[in-house]
Design a protein around this nucleic acid. Sequence first.
DNA 1: CTGAAAGCGCTTACAG
DNA 2: CTGAAAGCGCTTACAG
Lengths: 336, 336
Amino acid sequence: MKKDITPSSKSVARALGVSVATISRVLTRPDLVNEKTRERVLRGIERLGYRPNLAARDLRRGQTGTILVVVPQAGVFFLDVLRGVEQAADEHGFTVLLANTRGDLNRQRTHFDHVMSHRADGVILLTGQLPTVPTASQNRLPLVVAVEPVPSSNVSAVTVDHAEGAEQATQHLIALGHRRIAHIAGPDNVFSAGTRLAGYRKALRTARIAADECLVQRGLFSVESGAKAMQSLLRQRRVPTAVFCANDQMAIGAIGALRAVGLRVPADMSVVGFDDLELAEVYAPALTTIHIPRFDAGYQAMMILVDIISRTRPARSLTLSTRLVIRATTAPPPNR
Amino acid sequence: MKKDITPSSKSVARALGVSVATISRVLTRPDLVNEKTRERVLRGIERLGYRPNLAARDLRRGQTGTILVVVPQAGVFFLDVLRGVEQAADEHGFTVLLANTRGDLNRQRTHFDHVMSHRADGVILLTGQLPTVPTASQNRLPLVVAVEPVPSSNVSAVTVDHAEGAEQATQHLIALGHRRIAHIAGPDNVFSAGTRLAGYRKALRTARIAADECLVQRGLFSVESGAKAMQSLLRQRRVPTAVFCANDQMAIGAIGALRAVGLRVPADMSVVGFDDLELAEVYAPALTTIHIPRFDAGYQAMMILVDIISRTRPARSLTLSTRLVIRATTAPPPNR
DNA sequence: CTGAAAGCGCTTACAG
DNA sequence: CTGAAAGCGCTTACAG
C-alpha cells in the first residue's frame, strides 16, 4: 500500500522537461544551477506541490538532521530540559522530536531503533534506565544521558549533583535550628531518588544528628504520595519539625496534609522541595526548594551530542550544580 | 559522510550465507521461513547487532508507522492531550513523536514536511494556526487539528466547546449572585481565547447584565499577566466581585495579586479559571475552573487520524463538551 | 550548467 | 522454503 501524498522528483522532472538531478540541485545546491532554470523549476515545484521524500534523502545521505529526546513519562520536568535541547539544536540546524516511553523499556528500545536505523542521528535520554541494546551496537549509538545519574560509566552524561542539592536542603533546615528532620524520598527505581536520600543522610551525619529511619518515608513523586507520607510522619511518637521532600510535588502534597490537620507551614513545620518547578514559585506559600538547571542540562547534553555526531570532539560528561532557593515554607522550629 | 552505526542486511546475509531476502523475511514474515534457518539468522542478527535501516524500509513501504504531534509550545496543557494520542496510537500500532514549533510557523512547516515526506504518516496539530502548505498538497496531508477551533472548515478537527465552557463559568458566578463580573481574556492571536470571551459575553447578555468593557482585561495566559490584569481591575472605580479568567495560570496570578493587597478569595472576590490543570486541584484554595477533556481530545484526534491514514472511514470532526468543576475559589459576593 | 547512472538498504512479487 | 532482481526516491560523482 503506497501513499502518494506528494509527487516524486521524477514526475516533476518530466513535467518540467529537466532531469531529476536538476530538481535535486535546485533544492540542495541552488548555486550550481542556471538562474533561469532555477526559477522555472522553483515555480514548478510550487505549482505541483512537490516536497522531497525525506526517507529517500535520509537513506541516501545516511543522516537525518533530527535527534530524539526520550523521556520516561510526559511531565513538566522534562519540558524545560526539552527547551534547552531545542535551543542548542537550533544553533546547529537539528530538528528535535520527543518520544515518550511511558516507563516501558520495550518502547525505549523501539525509539533507539529509530536512531540505530537512521531515522534520527542521535538520542538524548532523560532517564537512567539504560536499555539492553545489542552489545555490538551499544557504543555506536550517539547517545547522551541527561539529568539522571548513569550507573554504567562509558556513556556521555550531563548529570546534576543530586546529592549536593539534597545536602544543601538539609543543611538549610539544620541551620535554621531543626534537629528532627524527616525525608520523603522518591521511588526506589529512580536512581536520583537514591542519590538525594544519600545527600540527606550525609548532611545529618556531618551535623552529628543521629539518623532515625522512622523519619524516612518513601513516596512516588506524586502529590498524593507526598500527602500520604506526611500522614505517616504525623503518626510518629515524636513528630519532626521539618521535612525535606525529594521533589516539589510531594512537598505540595505534604503541605496539603499538614493543613488538613490544622498545622501551619512554616510556623509548625518547615517543608523543602526539590526541582524548583514553576509550581514551587506560584504556590502559596511559595516553596523553598532546590533548583535544578534543567534548561542548561538539556542545552549541554545537546552540545555534547552534536560533537559526538559530527565527531569534532570526543564524548565527555559533565556535572551541573544545584542551587538552594529559599522562599516561604521554611523557618526556625516552633519553640516548645 | 556516511555513518555506519549498524551493519546492513547485505553484510549480515553474506556473513550467514543466506540472501538479504531471508534476513528481511525473518524479521517481518517469520512464518515464511524454515525454523532452523530462522533460528540461525536470529542468532546471527543478535550477534552482529543488526538493526534494519528504517529509512530504507520506510522508503520501500511508503509508510512509517509514526505520527507527529505538533504543539506551539512545550506546556503542561499539551502533555495530557499527548497521553490521549499515545493511548490511541498504541491500540493501532503507531509510534508517536512530539514536535514543538515554539510558535514559529516556519518550524511548523518543517514538521509538516516530515509528514509530506514520508518521515511520518500523519500529523495531529494542537494549534489553530494552520500553515501555508503548498495548496496542491494541502488536502492530501493526513492531518487532524485538536483542541483549538479551526477557522477553515475543510480539515478534520476535534474541537472543545470553549464558548460553552466560558458560559458555564460565568453562569456559575451569576448564580452565586454576582453582577459585576470581570474577565481576564487570553491573547488576541489564540483563537480559543476569543471564543471564551464570546461565551462570557453571551452569559452576561442572557442574564441581562449590562456589559462593561472596563471589566475585560487582556492577559497572555501566564501567571504574571494574570496578576497584572487583576491589578488593573482593582484600580477600577467600581471593583468587580468576581472574575472569570481564560486559563488557570492567569487565575493563579490574579489570586496572588488579590492576596498581595490583603483581599481574600473567595470571601472578597470569587475567581474561576479555565483548563483544569493539575495545578488547579493542588492549589490552595483549590481553584474552581472549567475542565477540558484533554486526554479524550487527543484520543479522539488519533482515532480520526488512523481512519484518515488507512482510509477506512471518511474524515470527520467532532466537538467535546467542557465541565464546570466547583472547588474553593467561588462564593456569593460579599454583602456591603 | 546539465544529464545519465549508480547506489543508499530495504521489501516483495516472481521463479524455482 | 529460498534466492535473484526490481524498485522505492533521492543525491552525487562522473561525463560532456
